[in-house]
Design a protein around this nucleic acid. Structure first.
Lengths: 207, 207
DNA sequence: AATTAATTAAAACGTATGATTGAATGTAAC
DNA sequence: GTTACATTCAATCATACGTTTTAATTAATT
């Protein structure tokens, strides 16, 4: 039981599961296709995770944690600078981390994570798991937006916020398509694309 | 071979397939769960459709056809009245039919159709089928928007258009959640919700 | 070196999958 | 009424599914 070598098999399984769940969905992905991609034994999944359901939860939580952390950190930085940040500044803190992770992640990992995020909102069975993984981020940003737009009702802000998340996920998932918001991965172009998306979303939020 | 009684079994299969594909995804839905819900024999699917793949195509096309037709008709009406319609008018023609179908469809049919629409964009294997089913609508509305916003480049309009579709699908799929854009199904509330969404989307498009 | 615990491997469990078959049933035309 | 066609049905194919069990292997502790 060495902490350094912890989870080599676990990580292999999680990496393969992340990719296949993202591409095919949770229900359509078999444990056998995962162990084939991870090059491990079938029983390893049940040994390390217990069941397919628990593997799904572990995969989602591993994906969500760094994104939520980056979003909260960025929002805290913005709020430290300006006690009453603008809608644009809040949306920037919310959208930039995810976009940077996707566009500058190693290999296709970012796109995979984006698709997995999308899966969490489309699969009714999985939705509560995903909602819980992103709960801290959701409530924090919703509160910040409420302070920046005090004239709008909670329910109005809630569905608008929900639409901004939908836009973010779509931008992330469509990253490989022609006419994507961002074509090349240069830092300057990434920053410009984030600005475009923030501008688009802010216009809607303030409408 | 009577044209009047055509497709009783076919329709039962399509109805069940539509619901299950929408709820669980294409890969995760078995033909046996479909024939169980449709109360038909297993072989009926292969007799009437040929394979699971072809059933998927038939299900998507049946769902898309009336929506595309309603959208195009509404746009034609708007264009007949004003040769150069506003962004809001174009978006209204684009969003209202789908929203009305969902909110005023018989039973949960509308919500099911919305979820199926969403599936067509999230399942990589299925995406080309869905894209083709909505192709006519997409290109027509994109052209109309291009005329209303001549200062924006094609690629800019394309990703913005794509985001509006993502918002539409999200609104449709989240129709049953708390804090949805629309709470009750009264015609007045539906019209108001459409107006809110059009306003939100138009602000982004013009940004 | 011996013992214990952690991990991996192989095989099997019962059940479910998409697809196909050939017989049974209904329905039209002659 | 009988032929011809369209449709439904039950049974079966080979394969794949999630899970469990038991044995082999590896690593850490004494």
């Amino acid at each position: 039981m060495v902490s350094a070598s912890f989870g080599d098999t676990q990580t292999q399984i999680l990496d393969a599961a992340e990719q296949l769940f993202a591409e095919q969905g949770f229900g359509a992905t078999s444990l056998r296709s995962i162990i084939r991609a991870a090059d491990v034994n079938l029983a390893a999944i049940h040994y390390h995770f217990g069941s397919k359901e628990k593997l799904i939860v572990a995969t989602i939580e591993r994906m969500a944690q760094p994104i939520v952390q980056a979003e909260l950190k960025q929002l805290a930085a913005v709020q430290a600078e300006h006690p009453q940040p603008t809608v644009e500044a809040i949306l920037h803190a919310m959208l930039a981390p995810a976009l940077e992770i996707v566009y500058h992640g190693q290999g296709d990992r970012g796109l995979t994570q984006a698709r997995l995020m999308g899966r969490c909102r489309t699969e009714p069975t999985i939705e509560p798991i995903g909602a819980q993984a992103f709960a801290k981020s959701s409530q924090t940003f919703l509160t910040a937006l409420q302070q920046a737009l005090p004239d709008q009702s909670t329910s109005e802000l809630t569905w608008k916020f929900d639409l901004v998340i939908a836009m973010l996920i779509r931008v992330l998932c469509a990253a490989d398509q022609p006419n994507a918001i961002l074509q090349d991965n240069s830092p300057a172009e990434t920053a410009a694309a984030i600005e475009r998306l923030v501008h688009f979303a802010a216009a809607g939020m303030k409408s």
